[in-house]
């Protein structure tokens, strides 16, 4: 059975609800094989200082282009609004896309997004014609500010980047889902297991974005296939609608006609 709806990001539709990163794989080939096994249609990339010893990034870029996927550049590692805006502008030119995964580090300890500067940078970039996918915390009010600025997509964290701890605050994530039913919501960062992905989809999230969970698995390609299945399972479960939760047991087997009913010796 197929997911009847598609993931919508700024007017583009995708069959896969998994966005995948291109970093930390044991080798370029495993990166390509993992991305293919995930069936993801969107891959994240970044920009860094050109290193002539590494061919100026040509080889990596060709490997990504060979996959034929939609590119989502990020501003990972930026600590100021100016850095993020400049990197976004450079990314737009080199990757030929208005999409930007806006990351603005607010603290080195947990790489938490800076909520205040994130909003300011988002406004600058939206006014400059970008389609911003902000990586944010699970703060409902920050999300509201981002939506009011014009963001059509929000990417609250599940847990700090690279921790693999899963959804640390399901209540907050669920509240964001209920508050913004028309916004495309993607859990970005912190997912470590396919069960975490299932949980995100079961609560109504539209997508997940991950990298380390696949790239740092013992077998990245196999884990990529597992996440593909988990995304489909979680989304179908959401569409199916869960059973009402109860506090007391209710027998599933009919009690009518039960032999020996309450017979005592």
């Amino acid at each position: 059975m197929q997911d009847t709806n598609k993931l919508e990001i700024y007017g583009k539709s995708f069959d896969s609800r998994l966005l995948i990163g291109s970093a930390l794989y044991p080798s370029p080939k495993i990166m390509q094989d993992s991305i293919r096994a995930s069936a993801s249609e969107i891959v994240t990339v970044s920009l860094r200082r050109q290193s002539p010893e590494e061919g100026g990034g040509t080889q990596f870029w060709q490997q990504i282009k060979d996959l034929g996927l939609t590119i989502l550049p990020n501003t990972a590692g930026c600590h100021s609004i100016q850095e993020a805006v400049t990197l976004a502008q450079m990314s737009r030119e080199i990757f030929d896309t208005n999409w930007i995964k806006l990351e603005l580090v607010g603290d080195e300890y947990n790489l938490q997004p800076d909520p205040i500067d994130l909003v300011k940078a988002t406004e600058i970039l939206l006014n400059d014609g970008f389609e911003v996918l902000p990586y944010c915390t699970d703060d409902l009010v920050i999300c509201r500010h981002l939506v009011e600025l014009g963001c059509k997509v929000l990417m609250p964290w599940g847990a700090p980047i690279g921790t693999g701890k899963g959804l640390l605050n399901p209540y907050a994530l669920s509240a964001i889902r209920h508050r913004f039913p028309q916004i495309t919501l993607i859990v970005d960062a912190g997912i470590g297991l396919p069960s975490h992905a299932v949980q995100a989809f079961e609560m109504g999230y539209d997508g997940i974005l991950l990298n380390s969970a696949i790239a740092q698995a013992q077998s990245p390609v196999t884990m990529a296939a597992s996440f593909k299945a988990a995304c489909q399972a979680g989304r179908l479960a959401y569409e199916a609608g869960r059973m009402p939760e109860k506090n007391t047991a209710q027998p599933s087997t009919p009690t009518l006609g039960m032999p020996f009913w309450h017979q005592t010796g």
């Binding site: 291109s22 930390l24 990166m31 970044s46 290193s51 990034g57 870029w61 990757f95 990298n211």
Partner: peptide
Amino acid sequence: IEILSPVQGG
């Protein structure tokens, strides 16, 4: 002057 090129990203 900064000369930037594509790299892996998450």
